[in-house]
Write a protein that binds this DNA or RNA. Sequence first.
DNA 1: AATCCGTTCAACCGCCGTCGA
DNA 2: TTCGACGGCGGTTGAACGGAT
Length: 341
Amino acid sequence: MGHHSCCNKQKVKRGLWSPEEDEKLIKYITTYGHGCWSSVPKLAGLQRCGKSCRLRWINYLRPDLKRGSFSHQEAALILELHSILGNRWAQIAKHLPGRTDNEVKNFWNSTMKKKIPSHGIFPSFPTFSNIHTPYNKNIGSMESLLPINANPNVILNFNHHHEDQLCYPTSSPNLQGNFHQIDTKVDMINNHYNGNFLHIQNPIPEILQPMSNPSPYEDTWSLGCLPLHLNQNQENQISKSDTTPLNKIINPIELMEQYVQCHDLVELEATLPKLVNDQSLEDYAAAKIQSYTTSITYPQDQNMEDNQLIYINDALIFMSSVSSSSSQVVKNPTIPLGWEP
DNA sequence: AATCCGTTCAACCGCCGTCGA
DNA sequence: TTCGACGGCGGTTGAACGGAT
């Protein structure tokens, strides 16, 4: 187990920091600044390695840190950003004033991840965390592009009208926006893989638009849906993964491919922005979450706050409905018990 | 009161990218 | 161009804590 070079030269203390050590570090940094971290321990009179000092300062002692639990708005923002950026905690934390990457990561792993149904129905909002893209070095094969069940926005609807038909939830403006966003993500993936995947029209093709315009909540996940028929392979794949009708969710990429095959879509590359590098993704993410950040910074903006709460409500309601395998339509959404940040 | 067990989160580890000699 | 120092990041660990039994 090799230690960082600065730790090898001297005997360093490890483990939890004592109040005395904290005091020394605070005193030194507020007086002189950290400069070169490797020299901080010696100059501050600490038996720690520079890296440990840096971590302690950044994650715990910095005066601008916001302590305490995460707000609904912050949780919503993390959810959204994670769907865009994957496990890039430092990037996510940049949009959360006073929060550190470590804090966001811990919050995700201990609170949010846990509350997402563990039976694989839907690990998170559509995420890049298991996609090998220029933005995320994590993985693997094209098979892992998006796991079956990964997309809450594409579900099989088993209500009275459309049994065995695949439906997009379409009526919630917030989710509509989210779905639109997925289109762009898919296009980003397409671009990265030299257009091997379909290209999707933007705006969304008419057939994917709401079939009616019901109230924002009432029919979010069960009505106003578009029937799409599955081939035998998809049916088999779904039936292997889950036996609960409402929980049937399929790979959105496959769905889109099938959609294109069925409707002979013409490629409309020019209609979508080309987001192929890190900066583009950052810009995209920044634009996408601007309203959230604004509201966090200026919580008195009630409209913004409402929008965020509606957004997280949508997300949480869906998670709740999926995990409970209930086909009941949620008419008066509230954050389910235990989902408070 | 003692023990067990699950959760949280501070801290560590190892890897990677950058920079300067 | 190479190499070492360093900062930054994400994944993981384990101590501390709290609730259940």
